[in-house]
Every structure is written in structure tokens, then in C-alpha cells.
């Protein structure tokens, strides 16, 4: 589904050129929920934003569903973006628009007729369980509800791919869980490929099948989520998994003590 090859990107700052992505090669299979994990500043956000060219890579190619995204001229890029949904950490809903109007926006952009938009938006709002909120403004919604609107907006034009840029990082654990459940449900129902980036192990564990670890702009490990937890190879993966192991040990010690009493 997605082929990334030899992708590089650097930022020019006052201090000089800083590489953010270095020769990234990655394959993401169709229908997968693919997680990219990394610590802050590893380059994961830049990587996912290259997939719909919100960031322009310096070199390398990205191929999505047979289309070489990195070669597309402006107009065709906009058309391709209509079929790539994206959700954000800060939701990025429009305050001037109701829930309905927010979700309708991508369909307006795609030039669909009004009756079609009305029917489609209602359908997708039901899917994210916000059917009763269509005339409410985003200000009145909770974080979890806002992200549901974000998801509805990302899915309304029936994309082939959903990009999630830290979509649950601003939410509490319980809401995170319900949003992840929703993503899993969507993946199953709509056979949609999902690429998500995160720094939370929980997110990987809950929804992802395959994953990649990114560190200093390089992919240092790829494989199944199971392999990552059971047999981490790279130092970064070990550092992540070590955090859990540390607490697991602590808990077993405490439980041991508890059993003793």
C-alpha cells in the first residue's frame, strides 16, 4: 500500500542544517494499523506529514496505492489528499462551523452536491456516535468528542488511508481507549489502512499490528508489535520496553510482598 524509499528531509535553521529524516525506507501493508513510535524530536511527526506532503521531503519517494505522491503537481496532490484522511493532536476543528459543517467541509472541497453531503455527513456522524451533536459548535464538546468529529471529518470522503498525528496525546487514558477502539472498529469495518504516530506504548499495544521505531530521523527497527514487546532489538525499542518491564518487576515484587502478608 505505502512504499517509502530513501526519504530525507532537513530543516535549515540559524545554527545550520539539521537533518530530521535520513534515508527512510518503509513498507506499510494495505489494511494494516501501522504504528510509528519514537521519543520527542525523533522525526515521527515530520515523517507522517510527508505522507500527504504537509511537509515537503528533500529527496526520496513515497508511493501510496500505486501513486507516487512525491511526484504529483499541486492540483493532483490536492486530489490525492482528498483520499487521505488525517487527524491531529489538537483536533484542528473550525470554530466558526458546527459539527455538521466541520464534517461537511471535505465534501464541499470535493464538490459534492448538498443532498449527498447531508446524507453522508449524517451517516458518518452516526458511525462516530455523534448523531445528536450535529448542530453544536466545537467549543461545547469534550476532547474526546472533538476527536470524534476530527475522525468523522477525516473519513467522510471515504479515504483509502488515515493518518493519525498523535491523535490521542491530548486525551485522558479512558478517552484515549475509546478513540482507539473506534479506530480499530473503522479499520475492520471500512478496511482502511491506518498509519499512526505516537510516543505512547499503550496506543501501539491496543491497536497496531505492525510498527516501526524511529530515532534521530532513522528507522531503527520494524516488525510486529508482538516482536517489539517480546524481543526488542534496537536500543530505542529496548528503552521503551524497559519502562514497562521496570514497572512489571516492581509490581510483581509488591504483589509478592502482598501475598506474604
Amino acid at each position: 500500500m505505502i512504499h517509502i524509499s530513501n526519504l530525507s528531509k532537513s530543516y535549515k535553521t540559524a545554527k545550520g542544517v539539521i537533518p530530521v529524516l535520513q534515508n527512510i525506507d518503509l513498507f506499510i501493508p494495505k489494511g494494516d494499523i501501522f504504528g510509528i513510535i519514537g521519543f520527542s524530536g525523533a522525526g515521527k511527526s515530520t515523517l507522517i506529514r510527508c505522507l500527504n506532503r504537509l511537509e515537503e521531503p528533500d529527496s526520496g519517494t513515497i508511493e501510496i496505492g500505486g501513486k507516487v505522491i512525491t511526484d504529483l503537481p499541486e492540483k493532483e496532490l490536492r486530489q490525492a489528499r482528498q483520499k487521505i484522511g488525517m487527524i491531529f493532536q489538537q483536533f484542528n476543528l473550525l470554530d466558526a462551523r458546527t459539527v455538521f459543517q466541520n464534517v461537511a467541509f471535505p465534501l464541499e472541497v470535493a464538490g459534492h452536491p448538498k443532498p449527498f453531503i447531508r446524507a453522508r455527513v449524517r451517516e458518518i456522524l452516526d458511525l462516530v456516535q455523534l448523531g445528536d451533536k450535529e448542530n453544536v459548535y466545537p467549543f461545547q464538546l469534550s476532547g474526546g468528542q472533538k476527536q470524534r468529529v476530527g475522525i468523522a471529518r477525516a473519513l467522510v470522503n471515504q479515504p483509502d488511508l488515515l493518518l493519525s498525528d498523535e491523535a490521542t496525546s491530548a486525551l485522558d487514558p479512558q478517552t484515549t481507549y475509546s478513540i482507539l477502539e473506534l479506530l480499530r472498529e473503522i479499520n475492520r469495518q471500512l478496511k482502511l489502512t491506518i498509519v499512526l504516530i505516537t510516543h505512547e506504548l499503550d496506543v501501539l499495544q491496543h491497536v497496531c499490528n505492525n510498527m516501526a521505531v524511529i530515532e534521530n530521523g532513522r528507522i531503527v527497527e520494524t516488525g510486529t508489535v508482538e516482536k517489539f514487546f517480546l524481543n526488542p532489538e534496537s536500543d530505542t525499542a529496548k528503552r521503551f520496553v524497559h519502562i514497562i518491564d521496570h514497572y512489571r518487576e516492581k509490581r510483581s515484587v509488591m504483589e509478592g510482598v502482598g501475598a506474604g502478608i
Binding site: N92, F105, V109
Partner: peptide, 14 residues
């Protein structure tokens, strides 16, 4: 916010 503009770009808005 830049995020709102970005969200619009991401759905293919001109």
C-alpha cells in the same frame, strides 16, 4: 491557528 489551515490543506482545499 496554523493547525486549522493545515487541516484544510490536508483535505485537499485550494
Amino acid at each position: 491557528s496554523a493547525g486549522k489551515i493545515e487541516a484544510a490543506k490536508a483535505v485537499g482545499a485550494t
